[in-house]
Amino acid sequence: MAAVSDARARLLSLLSLLQTPRLWPGSELAQRLGVSGRTVRRDIDRLRELGYPVHAEQGGSGGYRLTAGAAMPPLLLEDDEAVAVAIGLRTAAAQAVAGVDDAAVRALRKLLQVLPARLRRRVDTLASATVAHPFSLAPEPVDPDTLVVAAATIANHERLRFRYRDEGRHVEPHALVPAGRRWYLLAFDLDRDDWRTFRLDRVTDLVATGARAATTEVPGGDVAAFIASRTLQMAPTFPADVLIHAPAAHVVDRLGGPPPGTLTDQPDGTCRWLAPPDTPEWHTLRLASIGLPFEISGPAELVAHLRSTAALFQAATAGRRAAGQQDPEQDRLRKERIGTRAGADQRERPQQVGGR
Rank of each mutant, 00 (worst) to 15 (best):
R118C: 12
P74L: 12
T91N: 14
Q31C: 09
F162S: 06
G37I: 10
L263H: 04
D205T: 10
Y52F: 14
D145N: 15
F198E: 00
D205E: 13
E336M: 13
F238C: 01
D222L: 08
L312A: 14
P74T: 12
F198Q: 01
P239C: 06
D265R: 00
G99P: 09
G34Y: 03
A151V: 01
Q266K: 09
T340N: 13
R349E: 14
R334H: 03
D331Q: 11
L185R: 02
D265C: 04
D345F: 01
G319H: 10
A235D: 04
Q326P: 05
Y164H: 00
A275Y: 06
S136R: 07
T146L: 00
R181H: 07
L14W: 00
A71F: 14
L292E: 00
L176N: 09
D166T: 11
L137I: 11
A96Y: 06
R347T: 13
R38W: 15
P25D: 08
L76V: 02
A151D: 06
T317K: 05
A103K: 09
R349S: 11
H283R: 01
R212C: 11
D6S: 12
R46K: 12
I87V: 13
S128T: 07
A323W: 01
L176G: 03
L23F: 07
P173S: 10
V148F: 11
Q314E: 14
D102H: 02
D278P: 00
Q325H: 13
R42G: 07
R22K: 13
A310T: 09
V54R: 02
L75I: 13
T197A: 06
P173A: 06
R192E: 02
C271K: 06
R196S: 10
I338K: 12
E336H: 13
L232E: 04
S136H: 08
R202W: 01
R41K: 11
A235T: 11
R169N: 01
A98W: 07
L75A: 12
E140V: 04
